[in-house]
Design a protein around this nucleic acid. Sequence first.
RNA 1: CGGGGUGUGGCGCAGAUGGGAGCGCGCGUGGUUCGGGACCACGAGGUCGCAGGUUCAAGUCCUGUCGCCCCGACCA
Length: 478
Amino acid sequence: MAKEKKFVEAITAMDVDFAQWYTDIVKKAELVDYSSVKGCMIIRPYGYAIWENIQKYLDSRLKELGHENVYMPMFIPESLLQKEKDHVEGFAPEVAWVTHGGHEELTERLCVRPTSETLFCDHYAKIVQSYNDLPKLYNQWCSVVRWEKTTRPFLRTTEFLWQEGHTIHATAEEAQEETIRILNLYAELCENVLAIPVIKGQKTEKEKFAGAHATYTIESLMHDGKALQSGTSHNFGDGFARAFGIQYSDKTGKQQYVHQTSWGVTTRLIGALIMVHGDDSGLKLPPKIAPTQVIIVPIAQHKEGVLEKATELKNRIGNFARVKLDSSDKMPGWKFNEYEMKGVPLRLEVGPKDIENNQVVLVRRDTREKEIVSMNELENRIPQILEDIQNSMLESARKLRDEKTYTAVTMEEFKDIADNKPGFIKAMWCGETACEEKIKEVVGVTSRCMPFEQEHLSDKCICCGKEAKHMVYWGKAY
RNA sequence: CGGGGUGUGGCGCAGAUGGGAGCGCGCGUGGUUCGGGACCACGAGGUCGCAGGUUCAAGUCCUGUCGCCCCGACCA
């Protein structure tokens, strides 16, 4: 362990100070820089490349499912924002307002979008007339602004990047199907691409989105035992449709309100990647999302033929993986540490000895296992290793999460676990907000979700002792 | 928004009781090196967060203000 620490002195050890560890990684791996605007971050090329990979996957999957991308204005007139009561109330404390255009005060102030429900609704009301116009499956990639009090790179910033889908449907059933379809897509993104295991479930009344009929969520667990809401999908029912007058005439000529959904994931997912997979040497990226999957480090590159061979390998590997060659004058050891810190899944070392033996050295980031491979085998072996890294990262993340998931039946147990063992706690709940609030006050945890996969831990609500209606995942959350 | 901490070259820091702006790393050039953060030589780089004030003199003292970090209350 002491040896490991020596590798990367720049990063604070996780168990010494988790928050500092996170900040160190974010900066040292060159994901972000702080900007001159409070709470706003500069996403640097390496960080943005991760986001682009998330976008690529999600965007193509959404399009396969029939969604279309649009772009809405970043400003919302105050009157428009106020049309749905719960919605405004939910967002009012964190909206930024534009009051002036040039030197002139605006007659109506404009809000910088914290989310675009109202804009989509306003637009849908105009373009929808008949059942033939439905469904509308719109998605938008943009940034939104929420005036947060406490900010942290990726996890909570004043401005953040996201994707927001807004769909309208003829029936409640279709809207519900869409809501769940997207939740499943998000879960797939997390598990299959980001190697982050998630719990799918429904938010309680207290935790649901402002103005929603029901909110569904995927919850993941970070290395420090805190939960992170990683994506949400909302069924609005016809609440917004009524507030905004989004109606269509059905086949019988009757006016009906549409049924609506909205859903989003944000750059927060990058924070999840860091906190689920990272270790004391830095970031650890699953191959499917890593901007660079293979880094080639030439050894004694000044010697005859080394750089030529490294370049040749780069070109070959480039046919099936995202590869980079670092031919800078830095020491090989320096490069090893640098790319470990940046979480590059696989390192390929090639030096004079290797060339002599027609081999290379491959080193995995996740396990640090070293493997000598014949140069003839790269096309076979590298994809295998990358796939294996992808799978085993998901497995170890799942194992860690399961180890940090506890069960409580009494309040004493509940409190004891919450105080001493950071992680998810499963406990039964009667469904009353009063109990939820009391649990927060007494135990110090919030409800994360009512998982789709329910378990019967006891007949009674852990708080009031009345009949239990749901098993709930509780925890401290980001 | 409350409590605590912090702000000095790019980064990490030192600068007791007011009077030379310094160190390590990094950066540039040249050379020797290269299988886990190399070494030597030379060199570039600073409105001491910002604004006032006290003083002959402020990185240092006083007031205000802003940013960042940590802990809480609110949130993707």
